[in-house]
């Protein structure tokens, strides 16, 4: 897929609202992109969306998490306001004044109790105002357990650059789709999983890997840039190419896999960055420790403002990631 095709794909994939736990409802939109080339597609108990292509060579699994950060209604007050808890590691300071869109289409504004000091702001001080004039009306449009996200559509902020909601990790889903299609066309044995509940600690990846037992699992995910004013120190730059995962908080990538990815990048003549992210949470560790143990590696696209409602990515990075992933899958010696 070229950059233009990837941009359109990412924009489409970012539309469905999919906070962790609601994956079963959005997997169809993802799996539709590979159904025509897969031998089998299904959604498992945890909500992972899986596509399998039989073929030659070692079995490589591409893993991209489908879920995004969000909020959940935990209480409905008699005056019609909704109380929230987070879904994943959401900073409560991101929310006041923002529009929340729930999975059932209800929208509202997040408010914060005024007497709370800014530094002490927690989810227990936030509420959503859906314009309901009573608890009865609110209960018709919302329920305890209803999930939502901050409504921030994807925009093209500059040529090659997108910003908006859910780019982490629908961009990774698009990369995995492109690589899966290439590998399938090349006749390779390849699987793809859009993992569930990654944002909550890689809960889906583990059961998916247990079922699929791949010879290699490649995680496709976002990794944070350190190239913005006053940023935390991080070597990655936006637009400087795919990042090969070296280490994150969940896994150390085996040297053999890392070298395979770097060699693949060299063959394609791509600029490659190294992802050394000691605090990063990804599916890698869960995949590596699944069943009897799985060789794991990762290809990440640099992203700014991770964890906020508006993540920025560069489409040139994404296109290069897709080429790198396809080459890595089709050339893996096993």
């Amino acid at each position: 897929m070229n950059e233009q095709e990837l941009r359109d794909l990412i924009t489409d994939l970012a539309r469905p609202v999919g906070p962790s736990g609601t994956e079963p409802q959005m997997q169809a939109a993802l799996l539709d992109r590979v159904r025509d080339v897969a031998d089998e597609v299904f959604v498992d108990v945890l909500g992972n969306g899986v596509a399998v292509k039989r073929g030659d060579g070692p079995h490589v699994l591409l893993a991209a998490h489908a879920d995004e950060l969000g909020v959940m209604v935990i209480h409905i007050e008699d005056n019609g306001f909704l109380r929230l808890i987070s879904v994943g590691d959401v900073d409560p300071h991101c929310l006041p004044g923002r529009i929340v869109r729930f999975t059932n289409g209800t929208v509202g504004v997040v408010g914060a109790e005024a007497q709370v000091k800014r530094e002490e702001l927690g989810f227990e001080h936030l509420y959503v105002d859906i314009g309901a004039e009573s608890g009865v009306e609110a209960r018709e449009r919302a329920f305890v357990g209803l999930e939502g996200v901050v409504d921030e559509p994807v925009r093209e902020v500059a040529p090659h650059r997108l910003a908006g909601r859910a780019l982490d990790n629908r961009a990774g889903c698009a990369i995995a789709i492109a690589a899966f299609r290439s590998a399938a066309a090349a006749g390779r044995r390849v699987s793809l999983v859009f993992t569930a509940q990654q944002e909550l600690g890689a809960r889906g990846a583990r059961t998916a890997a247990y079922r699929l037992r791949p010879d290699l699992a490649l995680v496709i995910d976002a990794a944070p840039c350190g190239d913005t004013p006053g940023a935390e120190r991080m070597e990655l730059k936006l637009g400087a190419g795919p990042a090969v995962k070296i280490v994150d908080a969940t896994a150390v990538v085996p040297a053999r896999v890392k070298d395979h990815l770097l060699d693949a990048g060299k063959r394609l003549g791509l600029a490659i960055q190294y992802e050394v992210w000691p605090r990063g949470r990804s599916d890698a560790g869960a995949l590596q420790a699944a069943a009897g143990g799985v060789a794991v590696g990762g290809i990440s696209y640099p992203a700014r403002y991770m964890g906020t409602p508006a993540v920025m990515i560069d489409l040139r990075d994404v296109a290069a990631c897709a080429r790198l992933a396809a080459e890595a899958v089709t050339s893996y010696p096993g």
Binding site: D44, V45, L46, N48, I74, H75, R83, I85, S86, V144, G145, R203, G204, R206, T207, Y210, R211
Partner: peptide, 23 residues
């Protein structure tokens, strides 16, 4: 009733993630 708190957990968390996943 629905439990209206995020804290705490129970054994289903561990059971759900065994083998291919459990409903």
């Amino acid at each position: 009733q629905l439990r209206r708190v995020k804290g705490g957990s129970n054994n289903f968390a561990a059971i759900q993630r065994t083998r291919e996943g459990v409903a």
